[in-house]
């Protein structure tokens, strides 16, 4: 009995540790200015007068007399994040999957796969300044596709290694069975291998997308004004009169949480299967 009670308490404590900040953000997003401002005397758990003011403010639809109107709305950063993160994910997944399949089925030796993981051995920041210069030269600075390209390159090793493990675990006999029946290699790959890999593909894609979606440093260096992403934009949410705009930040944080959560829920069925793919096979 005491054991069960202790267990429950421990679980509650752990949950509080992880969930309270998120709940705090949700609560904050719906608070009017008076309730979230730093100098507010009466900080409350739940908004006393729930409002969508913070969201309106973000999209330039309304403001408070104490905060000046934003010179740019959250619209463009959201678009920038969506475009760069999803195109970056597409690049990483396409190249990573193709490379992983090729090396898993026809490759020999470990040098090439290890060379790919070495991309991750030194921090992206170490190469970002040179990349920044190259991008400036190529005219890719402050563009969503310039950012997407870097995201694709930086997350490629993850996509590659995840997919390679999955391909290695897939029984080759399944492909051979299709080959014996007269399929071409390409057809086997598109009609048999990829559909059977749907779960692992979805899991890897989500993982890569979240990495791209939450990047701050690369976006900070490679975008300046037009195509800043949500994290960079969020950092700029402050005003000279009131300091940090916590309400607006919380509202933006809530918006930023939507795509990963929605994607996660959509592919939840595949996710569990995908992340345990290797384990279940053995």
């Amino acid at each position: 009995m005491t054991r069960a009670l202790l267990r429950t308490l421990a679980i509650l404590a752990a949950l509080a540790f992880t969930l309270v900040p998120i709940l705090w953000m949700i609560s904050m997003a719906f608070k009017p200015f008076a309730e979230w401002q730093a100098s507010g005397a009466d900080l409350t758990w739940w908004p006393k007068a729930p409002t969508l003011d913070n969201f309106r403010y973000l999209f330039g639809l309304g403001t408070n007399e104490l905060i000046s109107m934003l010179d740019r709305t959250a619209m463009k950063p959201i678009l920038s994040s969506l475009l760069s993160a999803s195109v970056g994910t597409l690049i990483a997944m396409t190249c990573g999957t193709a490379a992983a399949y090729g090396l898993s089925r026809f490759g020999s030796g470990q040098n090439l796969p290890l060379a790919l993981i070495q991309l991750r051995l030194f921090p992206p920041m170490a190469v970002m300044i040179p990349v920044m210069m190259m991008w400036a030269f190529l005219g890719l600075m402050d563009t969503w596709f310039g950012l997407a390209l870097v995201y694709g390159i930086v997350t490629l090793p993850f996509a590659f290694w995840l997919m390679k493990t999955f391909f290695d675990d897939m029984p080759r006999e399944i492909e051979e069975a299709a080959l014996v029946e007269g399929c071409t290699r390409w057809r086997v790959f598109t009609r048999v291998t990829l559909p059977m890999m749907a779960a692992p593909l979805a899991a890897a894609a989500l993982f890569v997308f979240i990495l791209n979606w939450s990047d701050y440093l690369i976006a900070l260096l490679l975008t300046t004004r037009e195509w800043v992403t949500i994290p960079v934009y969020m950092a700029s949410l402050s005003s000279s009169m009131t300091g940090q705009l916590y309400g607006a930040k919380a509202a933006l944080g809530l918006i930023a949480a939507v795509p990963p959560v929605v994607l996660g829920v959509l592919i939840q069925k595949h996710l569990v299967r995908g992340l345990t793919f290797g384990a279940l096979k053995q």
Binding site: P171, E173, I174, E176, A177, A178, V180, T184, V192
Partner: peptide, 19 residues
């Protein structure tokens, strides 16, 4: 190549297309 030999092959682990 194997696709053009006109043989049927049954594998030990069935190799069923589970999708």
């Amino acid at each position: 190549p194997m696709g053009q030999r006109g043989v049927g092959f049954v594998f030990q682990n069935y190799a069923i297309f589970t999708h």
